[in-house]
Design a protein around this nucleic acid. Sequence first.
RNA 1: GCCGUUGUAGCUCAGACUGGUGGAGCGGCUGACUGUUAAUCAGCAGGCCUCAGGUUCAAAUCCUGACAACGGCGCCA
Length: 434
Amino acid sequence: MFTDIARVMSQEFSGKEVSVRGWIWRTRGSGKIVFPTVRDHSGVIQVTVKKGNVPDGQFEGALKALIESSVEITGTLKADDRAPGGFEIQATGFRVVGFADAYPIQKDQSEEWLRENRHLWIRSRRMVAIMKVRHTVVGAIHRFFRENGYYEFDPPILQPNQCEGGSTLFEVKYYDMQTYLSQTWQLYAEAGIFALGKIYDMAPTFRAEKSKTSRHLCEFWMAEMEAAWMELPEVTEVAKAEVKFIISEVLKNNREDLALLERDVSKLEICLEKPFPTITYTEGLELLKKDGMMVEWGKDLRTLEEEGIMKHFDTPVVVTHYPKEIMAFYKPVDEKAAAPGPVAKCFDMLAPECGIEIVGGSERDTSIAELTKYLEKDGENPANYQFYMDLRKYGSVPHSGYGVGVERLIQWICGLENIKDAIAFPRTSTRITP
RNA sequence: GCCGUUGUAGCUCAGACUGGUGGAGCGGCUGACUGUUAAUCAGCAGGCCUCAGGUUCAAAUCCUGACAACGGCGCCA
């Protein structure tokens, strides 16, 4: 019977015989005593192996075993101030299951080296903490939608057309045809709502942008929703509720992990206490103007400007009604909106602190004439969108949807400098290994 | 795509300006040590100085050109 290390480290087991198994975290020793610390998924504990207390062969093994050797240990749990964490196991049995070669990851590590050795680096306490938060985030997304009457609906990943105008697609040879890896489920989701009403999914998304930034991946996970009968004001509220729910779940389940990441938890707590504001693009520009940042109406907000807007807020903010000219073809014009030019029924949600876009969504245009006009403007052939147009012919309804960048959300929640740490094996334009 | 930075031991980096027998710390190996916290001490091994040209008696170092990685911008979640 083996017990998780975190569970063993308590008064409950003090003085009792325990068995744990895991990997050597650090080790040091002298001729007659060895102090390996051993980790598993739950924690780290120091072991003392004294010559004479274990069979001689096992003591030799303890002396020789390098970092990351796998071990099974039996011994007595003792509270001891000299041990990191306050508890240690005084071993009576120390079995090395697999001796490790010299571990490539040591105290001096470059970002590049850690990415080269990602398959080993994910064992680090830091990556383990992030992956545990990710586990909560993903679970919370499924729970949120399922408990609010959404069906999970899975789209094809191989898709014949592009959707977001301008974005770059990964081409895939599909027998003797050409197809692309999905960069959104949206066209298929818009078909799905006529069957299921409210739907969601979480799936890999691919963007072949050569973006070398701390907030871009070429392969990332997007959690999307689409709902029939829903218009812009309502869909933005769904997005706010979803993000709040995810944060509450993380705060409920991952306090220790956030502490290990040295995340200021109060920045997340405040997001549960206050409502997330909604402003328009035009109002955003006015906020920037007050700070002396002049942006011409009609230009898209750049990273710098998004950061500028978010200086005014300590919770996520929904920004609506961007100029239609710079928006994708399917985002409809809002005829009623007061703005210097045509604006779309669309929104982004920006995260506080870092200012990154964590959500993007919109109402969907139901006019075949409008869709055709803007597709042609983007240089697209509307004939390639026949099924999408069909949806407007057979009982069309107002509908909306959005996508959450799962890694971006994790990046903000964990306070990560780089989005690459929000996923175990990041894919970027310059790295496909390991 | 544009701009910038960096390529030297298994890892992290000095050395380059001013050309002249390639260095340190960490880690590994050998040995000492019965309470270590990044243990300590002594010794040993370890190199196509990213690659290709050029200048020079002589190039890690100077010049030219590739390649790669990293970062910023744009684009986006």
